[in-house]
Design a binder for these strands. Structure first.
Ligand SMILES: [Mn+2]
Ligand SMILES: [Mn+2]
Ligand SMILES: [Mn+2]
Ligand SMILES: [Mn+2]
Lengths: 224, 224
DNA sequence: ATGCATATTTAAGCTTACTTAAATCATAAA
DNA sequence: TTTATGATTTAAGTAAGCTTAAATATGCAT
């Protein structure tokens, strides 16, 4: 029996997992296709194949759901991705965007042995440079934190930026140009629901964020 | 025009290059097939495809020869391989065999950008942990050294071990169990040509090497 | 409840990288 | 020079991952 998972499979399963996590709805083949830059036909095809390998539950026209082994695989890939990001950032000093791009390919080229070495070298880190939690060896993810997106945060309360969760270069460009780094204090000033914009303050800069950006910035209540 | 080279292509071209270098003869599809663990038919097929991409010169029943761009590609892959080996050894402390196994897959998952970062981090090393020369960014390899294999070395002269050139786990096991490391002083005591064995002395141990091992250990005359 | 726009699946076909089995070539021994 | 043995190539087929184009189902607006 073939037990090795291909790069295409790993990326597909990871995309399903991430969509399940962040949106929680509409995890259909079309959504995944768009995310991976392949056609709907190819995504449907893949869904059927992965169902036959017991990685997803797939019924025509229904949402994709990961099986237990599918979820296990996704978390394992995510662990490789985030450990590489942490390693490349801490050791080679790569920035948030570079780190993501490189990890996207290294995550498919890393043995369990090498992963353990990296993990130990870093001292078993719990978060990657974006603030994303790193699953441990058993697939456990630290999800205990009370994090909300800027778009859902209350106005006029001081929050702390705890996660910059994007994959796109412009987003990270924008963040580093505007003092938006992990740990920054941020105050949400006003929501503009009709226009899907949020006005925020960081230090002495005021920013008007569109919903994509406001969804990608996670914050938690300040402790002090 | 597709310019990206697949993993299979990179491994094939690298195998041809290495065979050209070490044996210098008999670089036929069958030899490469054996090296890569694929069938003769698959190797022939690949040879034809790579010829159409101008990476090898291929004529039926003749030896495979790399074209200039084929050689360029091979050297580039070798550079990635050896920089990863050096990095994994120096930073994570992996041993010679582990380093090789991991580099065999990382070499296909490394951007030019990341490679430059690794190179700079290591201080532009000239040799990998096996003593193999690392090609520079322009594909130049430091081949100036007067290295010979133990099987070709003169008897009763003190040499220095400068290269342990194998890919197989048992070989490295044997080396590290017998004080055979880069820099060790070694004296060749006797050649047994009929039996293809060589008797050597390292410190106070005498070893009888078969030709595979005696070919994989390179030495140079001691300077002092 | 019906119809239509949109999403999804099916069908047919392509490329890469393999396989096994059969045919053919090369060359060394007789 | 002939022959046979082994190496090499050809032929046919498979699986993964894609594509485009056509068919079909879904679900929302009327
Ligand atoms: Mn990936
Ligand atoms: Mn991350
Ligand atoms: Mn390789
Ligand atoms: Mn090496």
């Amino acid at each position: 029996m073939e037990n090795s998972t291909s790069i295409a499979t790993e990326n597909f399963i990871k995309a399903v997992f991430k969509h399940e996590q962040t949106e929680g709805a509409d995890t259909k083949s079309g959504t995944i296709a768009r995310e991976l830059g392949i056609t709907h036909a190819a995504a449907t095809d893949m869904a059927r194949k992965l169902a036959s390998k017991n990685l997803v539950d797939y019924q025509k026209y229904k949402e994709l759901k990961l099986t237990d082994s599918g979820r296990e695989l996704a978390v394992h890939v995510l662990r490789r991705h985030r450990l590489w990001e942490t390693f490349l950032n801490r050791v080679l000093g790569l920035d948030m965007h570079q780190v993501h791009t490189e990890a996207e390919v290294l995550e498919h080229a890393t043995s369990d042995f090498l992963l353990d070495q990296i993990d130990a070298y870093l001292g078993y880190p719990k978060f990657d440079p974006h603030g994303d939690p790193i699953p441990d060896k058993n697939g456990m993810v630290d999800d205990s934190l009370a994090q909300i997106t800027v778009s859902n945060a209350e106005v006029n309360i001081a929050y702390q930026v705890c996660r910059l969760s994007g994959s796109d270069e412009e987003f990270f460009d924008f963040c580093s140009s505007n003092q938006l780094v992990l740990g920054s204090t941020i105050i949400i000033r006003k929501h503009y629901p009709k226009n899907k914009m949020t006005e925020v303050e960081i230090g002495d800069v005021k920013l008007l964020l569109n919903s994509d950006f406001a969804d990608a910035i996670l914050v938690e209540a300040k402790l002090n």
